[in-house]
Design a binder for these strands. Structure first.
Lengths: 147, 147
DNA sequence: TAAACTAATTATAACAATTATAAATTAAGA
DNA sequence: TCTTAATTTATAATTGTTATAATTAGTTTA
């Protein structure tokens, strides 16, 4: 399954005329198999072993390229650094305010609110972003024990 | 109306034991009357005339204080710097991907999706964040003329 | 009202994420 | 294989934000 994702992604690069370098291959592979929505630095560190000479700039450059061709989504939260998410089918994120964990969940599109906003503001709507914030099960346990 | 907001905000500061300084007064005033969701630097520049000696740190410190007492919301988008929004009643934002304009609109809460996410993930839900992206009316006109 | 205490401001330096630059390298088509 | 333009690397620069320490100013208490 993730193998198919990788093949699809490489196909996308080919058709959009983006060269497939070993670094790009590795970054994509890591993003696909990673369930943790890594930061640029996470990716850099994870690939240090395979590419001892890789520059941080390469990671940033390629994440931008991937974003531009629609393979990757950039998630910006309050904290300093962006997180990157390989785009598969549409899903939303729920984020633990205690430990920062991000969990995916699926939900039918919010067409209604998009339509409403478009009516009210006169904008032409393209997309939306939704996140839910709360406390994950394991942090809940911890906070109960503290009390 | 915005006068009331200011009074309410000052009241909140008083009850939470946060000192009301001229700088804080001015930052709040600016945030309330501003319809543009300014960055910290916008605020700093706007108050330069009134407070020639004010430090950027003061702006950041106070925005953090305001956020902590719930007067202000920090909005982080892809671009480098955060934007700050005086919290009135609940509203959402629609953002123009062309010119960056942010427009408020009201919509009933999305309790259903919060509840759903909570069920599916086991999180305890606190809040959510929703933004709509699109093209604002004036940018639409421009892009039509270009074609 | 004055003194004392504490919080806030200022100026500055430090930091960290990201981007720009230029030289060296390399993927991919002819 | 050769050529060319894209990519990588190494490094420096930039920028938003935070930390620090000294100064200033609100607030409380006597």
């Amino acid at each position: 399954m993730s193998e198919t994702h990788l093949q699809d992604a490489l196909g996308t690069l080919k058709t959009t005329g983006v060269r497939i370098t070993p670094q790009r291959h590795a970054i994509l592979e890591f993003l696909i198999q990673s369930m943790t929505h890594p930061t640029a630095d996470d990716i850099y560190k994870a690939l240090e072993g395979k590419f001892p000479n890789m520059s941080v700039a390469t990671v940033y450059n390629n994440l931008r390229v991937f974003r531009e061709v629609g393979l990757v989504k950039e998630l910006t939260y309050g904290d300093s650094s962006s997180r990157f998410d390989f785009v598969t089918n549409d899903h939303y994120h729920i984020i633990c305010e205690c430990c920062g964990k991000i969990v995916d969940f699926h939900y039918p599109g919010l067409d209604e609110i998009e339509h409403f906003a478009s009516q009210v503001t006169g904008f032409e709507v393209n997309a939306h972003r939704l996140e839910i914030y709360g406390t994950c099960p394991s942090c809940k346990v911890v906070s109960e024990n503290v009390q």
